[in-house]
Amino acid sequence: LVRYRTISKIPQITLNFVDLKGDPFLASPTSDREIIAPKIKERTHNVTEKVTQVLSLGADVLPEYKLQAPRIHRWTILHYSPFKAVWDWLILLLVIYTAVFTPYSAAFLLKETEEGPPATECGYACQPLAVVDLIVDIMFIVDILINFRTTYVNANEEVVSHPGRIAVHYFKGWFLIDMVAAIPFDLLIFGSGSEELIGLLKTARLLRLVRVARKLDRYSEYGAAVLFLLMCTFALIAHWLACIWYAIGNMEQPHMDSRIGWLHNLGDQIGKPYNSSGLGGPSIKDKYVTALYFTFSSLTSVGFGNVSPNTNSEKIFSICVMLIGSLMYASIFGNVSAIIQRLYSGTARYHTQMLRVREFIRFHQIPNPLRQRLEEYFQHAWSYTNGIDMNAVLKGFPECLQADICLHLNRSLLQHCKPFRGATKGCLRALAMKFKTTHAPPGDTLVHAGDLLTALYFISRGSIEILRGDVVVAILGKNDIFGEPLNLYARPGKSNGDVRALTYCDLHKIHR
């Protein structure tokens, strides 16, 4: 019993810090008490220290592992850092350059016999395009090294910054494609005289377009951006097909006994025919423009016929181009109408809503002055909100995010209106959640004399007048207030005048 009563005193000691020596009952000389009392004092002292730490809000209350900052290894790049964003855009520009100039170089340097010394005699450094290609190869190699040090988000939505895990993730992902696209074939085969082989191998750079397509997928929600990307894709495919079309004609031209190829026909049409040795002929500019003209006309199913396939190889390629053109029509131009419709969806919704308003007016036989006010209010409210119901949009977000959005939407009023000066951010967040926005066209009466005042109004834009009878008592403008002081009276009061809008007004109100 003594032991039980001794232990039962522990909660009292913990909360009230009572010393055991003052209790005459606990001072009985028993061996059990002498053993338990020192333990009680020690526990009391420890609990006292913990309570003191909690009340003082000291940093040592938290466990040590929670006080440590997340460790980022040296030379690790955050995937959302500004440097990584700028670097990704730079790589994107280099990939676009590669997609345009690599097929052009591979096709127009394929057994090209233009006048001038061969590239091997001039030297590697004197070729501007080769120098640019070398810079692109170096940048792609540097990009691989950067990807080995860039964080990523795993399946659990955690940012991984450990170098080993980053390397394994990159090896399992895009490393092989990036490595093949970054191989400097110019340096590996330079001086061997195989410019045709170098041009063909350099087309491996186009593998990076797969990554670019995935990154550009984030802009699919913007109709104008999608339309622009589709047109660029169409032009890029036409450019690639033009390079292939020229390569076919250029390879067949020296081996044909009869002059029936499209390059021969082009030379005869523009007065620059090929001679018996295969030299001469149109310039590279004429060849490229004509090839691009043929691919565009074939892809769009126009086909004027002034550039036509004559050999079997050219006919087979033309059939493939027609098939590609039909697929592009289905996948690209078939979506253009939907994209344009999405661009004008706001206008369509406006006309639909206006039609419903006019049908309501016609069905209920609203008189002319009231009908005009109804239409003007709808037009003004639509121009202010673009038909978007803010309350319906915010309803799907958590309250903390709703408060931040409301604070942002009402920031101008909260910053410049005098009653809100000096208020804490928590108070402003709470008030912003209570605001209701209303609009009024010129001549609209917001409050009639004798109406119950259940709200306090803040003028965000425009001006109003307060009338008693036919006498203008006051004219209020931006950041002015009218209405009933909230919670100042037990019952809502009545208006002693009319409140009429002089201009288009936007008002925020808080109800009782």
Rank of each mutant, 00 (worst) to 15 (best):
S383E: 09
H264D: 02
Y344M: 13
L292F: 01
Y219S: 05
N386K: 04
L229R: 01
L236T: 01
T437R: 09
E195Y: 10
F83P: 05
G223R: 04
G396C: 15
I324Y: 03
L266K: 04
Q365G: 08
T98C: 07
G193L: 05
E64D: 10
H439I: 07
G426H: 02
L78G: 04
L145A: 08
S301D: 01
I183D: 01
R259A: 15
V307C: 01
G280N: 01
Y124Q: 03
L67E: 03
T76G: 01
S194W: 15
T150Q: 01
I198M: 07
T233K: 04
I270N: 01
L414I: 09
L209Y: 01
F378R: 04
A291N: 01
V95N: 01
F171A: 09
C406N: 08
E359N: 08
E314G: 01
V180E: 01
G426D: 04
P442S: 05
S331H: 01
K436Y: 11
L292N: 01
W262M: 01
I183T: 06
W174I: 01
V307L: 01
V210P: 10
V302Q: 03
S192H: 14
Y288K: 01
H264M: 01
I260Q: 04
Y384I: 15
H351L: 03
A440G: 03
P117A: 13
L299P: 01
M251Q: 03
G261V: 01
L90G: 07
N306A: 03
I138N: 03
S220E: 05
A449Q: 10
I146V: 05
I135Q: 01
N310M: 01
R208G: 04
I324N: 01
Y377L: 01
I183H: 01
S220F: 14
Y124L: 14
H448R: 10
L263F: 01
T290R: 01
E112Q: 05
A167E: 01
F378Y: 11
I248N: 01
R259G: 15
C126V: 01
D268P: 01
Q379P: 02
M256P: 11
E314C: 01
G267S: 01
Y350C: 01
H169D: 04
N156A: 13
L409K: 03
W87I: 01
L109R: 14
L94N: 05
G249H: 01
H73S: 07
Y344H: 12
P163N: 03
S298N: 01
F101M: 14
R349D: 15
L67C: 03
D257C: 01
N368V: 08
W382Y: 15
R429Y: 03
H169V: 04
G261H: 01
S308C: 04
A430K: 10
L197N: 03
N386S: 05
Y246H: 01
G249R: 01
H408I: 01
Y65K: 08
F296G: 01
V159H: 07
G223T: 09
A204F: 13
P282Y: 01
P117K: 10
T233N: 01
H264K: 06
W75T: 04
W87H: 01
L216Q: 03
W240A: 01
C406D: 01
T150C: 04
K66D: 04
I366V: 06
V132G: 01
I361Q: 03
S297V: 01
V226C: 12
F108A: 01
L93K: 01
V142I: 15
P398M: 01
Q365R: 11
G281Y: 03
A449W: 01
Y274D: 03
